[in-house]
Simulated assay, not measured.
Amino acid sequence: MAVQRLPTLFQIAVDLVILTIRDDRLHVLQVVRGKDPFLGGRALPGGFVRLPEGLEATALRELTEETGLDGSTLHLEQLRTYIAADRDPRGPVASVAYLAIAPNLPTPVAGTDAARAHWEPLDDAGRTADPLAFDHDQILVDGLERARAKLEFTPVAAAFCGSTFTMTELRRVYEIVWGVPLDPPNFHRKITGTSGFVVETDAHRALGAGRPARLYRRGTAKSLHPPLLRP
Rank of each mutant, 00 (worst) to 15 (best):
L63W: 09
I101A: 03
G196L: 13
L79T: 01
D23Y: 02
L60M: 08
D130W: 02
D88Q: 03
G34H: 04
T201Q: 11
A85K: 15
T64V: 11
A59W: 15
L207A: 15
A57L: 05
P92W: 11
Q11M: 13
A2T: 11
P181A: 05
L44I: 05
F48W: 01
H27F: 04
R146D: 06
T154W: 06
E175A: 06
D113F: 09
P103K: 08
A117H: 02
N104G: 05
A97L: 08
E145C: 00
G210E: 08
Y174D: 02
S72V: 02
S72T: 11
R127L: 08
P89Q: 07
P121D: 07
I176D: 07
P103M: 05
L69P: 00
D24W: 12
V198M: 12
T192Y: 06
A2D: 14
D137R: 10
A13W: 08
R50M: 10
V93Y: 03
Q138N: 08
V17Y: 00
D23W: 01
N104W: 03
R90Y: 06
V28R: 07
L105Q: 08
P89H: 10
T20H: 04
G40K: 10
E200W: 00
E169T: 01
R116K: 11
A206L: 11
D86F: 02
L44C: 11
G126Q: 09
D36Y: 07
G193T: 06
D124S: 12
A2W: 11
L60G: 00
V31H: 12
V3P: 08
Q30V: 06
I191V: 15
D123Y: 09
R87T: 05
V93N: 07
T154Y: 08
P92D: 03
A203T: 10
P227A: 14
A94G: 10
